[in-house]
Each structure stands twice: as C-alpha cells, then as structure tokens.
Amino acid sequence: MTVSRTTSYAGIAVVVAVLPLLLDPYWTDVFVSIGLYSVLALSLNIILGQAGLFHMGHAAFYAVGAYVTAIANTMWGVPVLWAMPFAGLAAALFAMLVARPIIHLRGDYLLIVTIGIVEIVRIALINNVFGLTGGANGIFGISRPTLFGFKIAKPVHFYYLVWAYVACSVLLFRRLENSRFGRALNYIKEDDTAAEGSGVNTASYKLWAFVLGAFWAGMTGTIYAAKMTIISPESFSFWESVVLFAIVILGGGSNRGVLLGAFLLIGLPEFFREFASARMLAFGLAMVVMMIFRPQGMLPPMPRFYKLPERIRCVTGKDGGAAAAQVGGEA
C-alpha cells in the first residue's frame, strides 16, 4: 500500500468519523442504511464480484441472520450482539446446504435458482415456519444492543457501530482479495475451465465463497435486527437482493466501488425525496444513465501489482523498486 493510499484511507476515515456531527438524525439514519448495505454488498461482492457467480438471492442469508438474532433475543433473552456469531454461522450453514447442489449451475441458471431460494425463504418466513418466525407480523420487541455497558439506541450510536463494522469488513475483505483464496476466485471468474485445469478445485472454492459471503451477511442481519427492533419478511424480499446486486455491479466490484455503489443506490433515492411520487422514476433513469456512462462500474478493481522476491528481480534484470510483475489481476 502506497503512502498516498494510506493517507487517502485515513482521510476517508476522518470524514466518516466527523460526519455525524454535521448531520441531523435523519441523514445520520440514511448513512446507517448506507453502511448496512455497504457491508451486505461487500459480502455479496465475494460471490458476485470476486468469483463471478450470478447470485441474486443474498437477502436470504441476510434474513437467516436477522431471524436467528431476533429469535435468540426475544425467546431466550440472548443479548443482541452476542447473537452475532451464531447468526453468521446459521447463515453460513444454510448457504452450505443450499449452495452445494446448485454450485455447478452456470450463469443465468444460477441466477434464477438464487432468486428461487430467496423467494422460498420469504414464503417460509411468511408462513411462520417451525412456528418461530411470527408469520407476516415478523418478530418485534428486539432489544437494543449494549456494548461495554453502553446502550446503543440513537441513530448516531448506530452510525458509529455500523461504520466501525464497515471498516472491519473492508480491511478483512482487502486481505481476502489478495490471499490465495481471493486469487483463486478471480481465476474462476476469468476462466472457470482454465482454473479447474490448473488444479484449482473450483466447486469447493465457489462453495466457500458462498459460505463466507453468507456468514458475513448473516452477521449484518444481527445489526439490522438491532437497528429496526422489528423484522418482518417484507424486509427480505427479492427486491432487496436486486438492490444489493445492482450495488455490486454499479460499483464495479472493487471494495471502494461497492461503497460508492451503496452510497449511490441507497442515498440517491433520499436525495430524490423532493420529487415525491416521481422519485423512483428519477432513480430508475439514473441507474440506466450511470451504467451507460460507466459500463464497467463506477470503480472497477485496479490492476494489482505484486513485488517480486529479490532473486527473481535479479533474473529479470530490471532495477529498483519500480520492477513489478502483474499477477492474476484484471484491467
């Protein structure tokens, strides 16, 4: 990471940290929403952006996490934030079960199957499956989370909670992208068959992409449940999955892009509030226009450069720190 990059990251962090001081509770809440969608979209980005798997059912995993949290909290009195890992695990387990048989499906067939999964989950929630989900009413009365004895209730509290979580997620996913795992996913995205041929166990990697994305989405479900204090099936409709899908593609698949995408797709409709009835019209048009002007997304991943070890550098005969080789990145 270059110095300028570090400073820019630090700059963004400072802006994010002082922002709520300038915002009224309404805009703070909008930014909480943006933060939540950012994390969800980051977790979808592993599956859709990194591995290139057409997945339009991410709300299903998110729902599993939120419901596990809500049930654990309202029935057994588990503190909300304690439920977070369990929510993640439940979502991951669910993803493993449903993704396993469908992982070999290609492109659009996978797309419709994931839509099918999110619809089945929603219908199951509405029909009060196992008598736990409260049907169409959903679950209400989820308690506010406490962190080290501090009760998180106001929009500004949630703002810091959510954006701290966003920061953790960004750091983690950055590491992941550059890991062996992340590079394998990129290989699969670029050329599935070649990856298989080079000894990458594609089915296994794809499945783990799903599991990991679902784990993170499930944990985000916890925060959503804590924020809303009431969750109902309509919060996890197919439409939510579509929005997340659009965030990732519009953003371009890089972590920065995903954050920008979340800001545009979740924040923009709020700017259009002045248009009242016409606000969704303007929103739809904006989506088309943005795609046309940036077909590759707002901020696609930059080509990655890796410093080669000293001895290889000697062989290539180039001098200085500028010598670099491009490995597995995309333009």
Binding site: D29, V30, S33, M228, I230, E234, S235, E270
Partner: peptide, 9 residues
C-alpha cells in the same frame, strides 16, 4: 418498513 423508518426520521 425501511423507507418508513427513514421517512419518520
């Protein structure tokens, strides 16, 4: 619900 929460805010 989500839009409503924002509208209320």
């Amino acid at each position: 619900p989500r839009t409503a929460a924002l509208a209320a805010q």
